[in-house]
């Protein structure tokens, strides 16, 4: 199965790094989309369907938490797993993210292997859930 993945980060460098890591990961990627804010991601999701969202938290316009809340509250997008890729380390905030339904958390700085392993695990688990 080839996956469509949306990368949401206000840093163009970080989006490029994550996309490069995923391309080199061995995962079958059908399409990698990107957005520079939560608002741009929500706009994109009205036109594109994706299998996974990798999102930063600290972004202008709309942060990753607000974006995840809206994605997971919308019946059209609520089945898309959202994984936060952030510098956030507070257990309180990580628990808040889990409570709203975020499936995974990748802490920056990450190695390519860490992001690949997390994505493979989450996509595998979600695929198994839906079979």
């Amino acid at each position: 199965m080839a996956y469509k993945i949306l990368v949401v980060d206000d840093s163009a460098t970080m989006r490029a790094l994550i996309k490069r890591t995923l391309t080199m990961s061995g995962l079958e990627i059908e399409r990698l989309c990107e957005a520079g804010s939560g608002k741009q991601a929500l706009d994109l999701l009205t036109k594109e369907s994706v299998d996974l969202i990798l999102a930063d938290i600290n972004m202008p316009e709309m942060n990753g938490i607000e974006m995840a809340e809206q994605v997971l509250a919308n019946p059209a997008t609520c089945r898309i797993p959202v994984v936060v890729v952030s510098t956030e380390a507070s257990q309180t905030r990580i628990q808040e993210l889990k409570t709203i339904g975020v499936k995974g958390f990748i802490h920056k700085p990450f190695t390519p292997e860490q992001i690949r392993d997390a994505v493979v695990e989450i996509l595998g688990a979600c695929h198994a859930e839906h079979v």
Partner: peptide
């Protein structure tokens, strides 16, 4: 992307 990468290194540094 030099400046953007530097901003991201600062962001990551703060996260650590």
């Amino acid at each position: 992307k030099g400046v953007d990468a530097f901003r991201e290194i600062l962001n990551t540094t703060c996260g650590v």
